[in-house]
Design a protein around this nucleic acid. Structure first.
Length: 278
DNA sequence: ATGTTTGTTCCGAT
DNA sequence: CATCGGAACAAACA
């Protein structure tokens, strides 16, 4: 479910709440597999101290003492919850439960995933490097090179909306934030990448940065299904600040918003504020 | 019953 | 041979 702001929120909260704890117990629910296989996973995490937590694109990496790294990807419905007490949720979506301990204080880290598109894996430093290399720069990155972004995006043969979702091109945007970034930049989501002007490319990056930063500030977007919550189970508030996603009427000009599937993803845009002709 | 859903990967087509 | 788009992964809800 989550895009960069949601994963960012979870990562930061994990960093301040679980570093220094040692994993004392690992329960994998029946029928679920932690990668590369559950036995290896359990063996690799037991009695290891958590030393760091970092985010790479939409991935969360929990570093353990020694060389192991727990790699989470939440995909559509993954959740990481930190509990003070052991509790098995009634939903049946719990996949992995880690008991963590620091100076006799126990906490419980739960990985839930309703649809099971997500994953939890134990990886090494080399895998981390490989993962890191898969991704393009993030719009919120300080040293982001606008010119390189525009050249790369123009080398694609697809719509601008689809290109924004290509994590190897630009990392962090998902369907919601990509939709809102295009609205902010006044660019039609179906514009061919070949026709993107330098001006538009630059505007688009600025817009993407803005929507992601606002999303982070609001601790992510929680839709009605409540699938995204932070590690304390709290909803984000960015859903109250969407620009065009999920809206029926354009906030700027009151035109009827067009809802259309582009590459299978629901896309919202204003035909007046985001015209196809430049 | 059908059509949705915050993501990614794989495979057939181009 | 590289790239693109749709299907698939799987579960719940309207």
């Amino acid at each position: 479910m989550p895009e960069l702001p949601e994963v960012h929120t979870i990562t930061n909260d994990l960093l301040t709440n679980i570093v220094g704890y040692t994993i004392r117990e690992c329960i994998i629910t029946k029928g679920y597999v932690a990668l590369p296989n559950s036995d290896t996973f359990i063996h690799s995490v037991l009695n290891k101290r958590i030393t760091n937590v970092e985010r790479i694109a939409k991935n969360i990496l929990v570093h353990l003492e020694g060389k192991g790294i727990i790699h989470f990807h939440l995909a559509m419905t993954g959740q990481i919850l930190l509990k003070e007490y052991k509790e098995i949720p009634s939903t049946g979506w719990l996949r992995v439960l880690l008991q963590i301990e620091k100076t006799s204080l126990n906490k419980y880290l739960m990985f839930n995933d309703m649809r099971m598109f997500g994953k939890i894996a134990i990886i090494g430093e080399k895998d981390r490097e490989t993962l890191f290399k898969k991704y393009g720069p993030e719009p919120i990155q300080k040293d982001l090179d606008v010119k390189t972004f525009i050249v790369k995006i123009k080398s694609k043969r697809t719509t601008i909306k689809n290109a924004l979702l290509d994590q190897s091109l630009i990392a962090g945007l998902g369907n919601i934030y990509a939709t809102d970034a295009l609205y902010l930049a006044g660019i039609n989501p179906e514009l061919s990448t070949k026709e993107l002007t330098d001006k538009q490319g630059s505007l688009l990056l600025q817009a993407a940065k803005k929507v992601l930063e606002e999303g982070i500030e609001h601790r992510g977007s929680t839709l009605e299904d409540k699938k995204y919550v932070d590690i304390f189970g709290e909803s984000g508030t960015h859903q109250n600040y969407f620009k065009i996603y999920s809206k029926k009427v354009c906030p700027k000009c009151n035109s009827k918003v067009i809802v259309k599937k582009i590459n299978g993803r629901g896309t919202y845009f204003c035909p007046v504020c985001q015209p196809l002709n430049k």
